[in-house]
């Protein structure tokens, strides 16, 4: 069976600055795959290439038989690849409910809108209390919940999560990761980019380690957690 997402030899540069050097990865249906690495390794750049916010210099990104590099950003969403961007990026002057409704903007998602709003509110009960509040006035953790809830509104086939734990309290970080595992258990395939290596490898089926734009290691979540190199570089043991 061919993977749901396959990235092959992706090269990307911001002008003269070469950021990604032949990055390859695969995500199979039903998996949580995590891409870990330190700040500036190129993790977000990889995700932004998948969502077509950036254009690669060369390489291929194939999702379910479709070449994403030929599509515009909104067409990628219509195929079922949705990104929850770094820094939450909720619409600050819209209410929680309006943000969720925006999450189901594409035509195919509109018929199930009310059902999916209900699902998102069930996943994050805090959002239900705040449903008529402007998103810009929510706390960081609540905004992250909203960003994830909004990302689920189309029932995506592949959810891309960019640093969902950034800037959250340790208690909240655990909640967010548990929720991601739960979302995956409900049938959504997840590609997770994280600096929190321990938590993300804990819930991931497989992981990749990215270092200054090159893939240096890959393996199952458990293997990588036990890997001496990973331990030394990221886990401080």
């Amino acid at each position: 069976m061919s993977p749901l997402l396959e990235m092959k030899d992706l090269d990307f540069a911001y002008g003269d600055v070469h950021v990604l050097h032949g990055v390859s990865l695969t995500v199979d249906k039903g998996e949580i795959v995590t891409l870990v690495g330190s700040n500036g390794a190129g993790k977000s750049t990889t995700l932004r290439n998948i969502s077509r916010l950036l254009k690669p210099r060369s390489g291929a990104i194939v999702f379910d038989g479709h070449d994403l590099t030929r599509l515009s950003p909104h067409a990628v969403v219509e195929l079922g690849v949705v990104q929850v961007p770094e820094g939450r990026r909720v619409f600050p002057e819209m209410t929680v409910l309006e943000n969720l409704r925006m999450g189901s903007y594409i035509k195919s998602a509109r018929p199930d809108r009310e059902k999916n709003i209900e699902r998102a509110l069930a996943l994050f009960p805090r959002l239900r209390e705040r449903r008529n509040q402007l998103a810009g006035t929510l706390s960081g953790g609540e905004q992250q919940m909203l960003a994830i809830g909004r990302g689920l509104m189309t029932k995506p086939r592949l959810l891309l999560l960019d640093e969902p734990s950034l800037g959250l309290s340790p208690l909240l970080v655990k909640t967010i990761f548990d929720t991601i595992a739960e979302i995956n258990a409900q049938g959504t395939t997840v590609l997770l980019v994280e600096q929190n290596v321990f938590q993300s490898l804990r819930i991931a089926h497989r992981g990749y380690v990215l270092e200054t734009g090159r893939m240096v290691l890959s393996g199952s979540g458990q293997d990588l957690l036990g890997n001496e190199q990973v331990k030394a570089a990221f886990l401080g043991v």
Partner: peptide, 24 residues
């Protein structure tokens, strides 16, 4: 309307709107 909300979303965060499938 959905289209009206998409216009507001584009105004508030152009990139995030693209990630919602809005053709900006």
């Amino acid at each position: 309307t959905d289209t009206g909300c998409a216009i507001r979303a584009t105004a508030q965060d152009r990139e995030a709107a693209q990630l919602m499938g809005v053709d900006v």
